[in-house]
Amino acid sequence: MNKTSSRLAPAAEACAQPAIAFDGVRLDFGGKCVVDGLSFTVAPGEFACVVGPSGCGKTTLLRLVTGLLSPTRGEVRRLGVTVDGPSRDVAIVFQDYGRALLPWRTAAGNIALALEAMGVPRLARAERVAALLDKVGLAGHGDKYPAQLSGGMQQRVQIARCLAQGPRVLLMDEPFGALDALTRQALQDEIARLVRDSGATVLFVTHDLDEAIYLGDRVFALQANPGRLAEVIDVGLPRPRDQLRTREHPEFLRLRHVLFDHVQKTH
């Protein structure tokens, strides 16, 4: 796998093009304006979190990036190119891992699906699947079906399938929302590490303000009716972050106040 080159390529373009760019985006759906006047950019390799009340268009935002939805007005660009449909450069991790995995395929089979879609030859697949299973801490669980895995493990399988695409943009839609607190923290640290290793740009939707600050380089706070950008917060916390020390950091607490006040105001 030409991992190294795909890791370096976006970095070379870094100064030229933002990984994701929204330019005056408005989306009407079913006669209702879902999001309006969205303009922002995400730099290559940046970890951007999106928070906001329900109905503010967080998930819509992701779908606009995948190309499954097209803006009514304005333009969405990925790596400088106008989005006109799904691309394998973009991977998405859904919250409902139970529905996003193929129940009839083992963990290894689910990861291999992405490789099959990319036309990776059969012989090369097994090795790469094994490496990915290892990477997400599921070595030895490859031949288990999703129904035999815990929620956290199923979500790891989905993450591995997305990483198998070698995506330059990774979208995550409340990926840890359905997991228990401990699994959630473990996966937060893992995703931070995996993303740093892959160099992918991340747009991470969550309703957990702490999670957004803990993971993000920047946090976009949205406002509802219609969904629009209310505030952008720079997170200057040092990396790698630590579940205890980062969360006790005075800056973490300050940002938490800022975000919390904002959500209170707009809710």
Binding site: T66, L68, P86, S87, R88, V90, A91, I92, F94, D96, R99, A100, L102, L113, A114, E116, A117, Q165
Partner: peptide, 20 residues
């Protein structure tokens, strides 16, 4: 959700019929 997964991976109609 599985349809969405297939679309995001760019899986064609024949592969979709056989694999999904």
């Amino acid at each position: 959700r599985l349809r969405e997964v297939a679309k995001n991976l760019g899986i064609g109609p024949l592969a979709f019929a056989l694999k999904f």
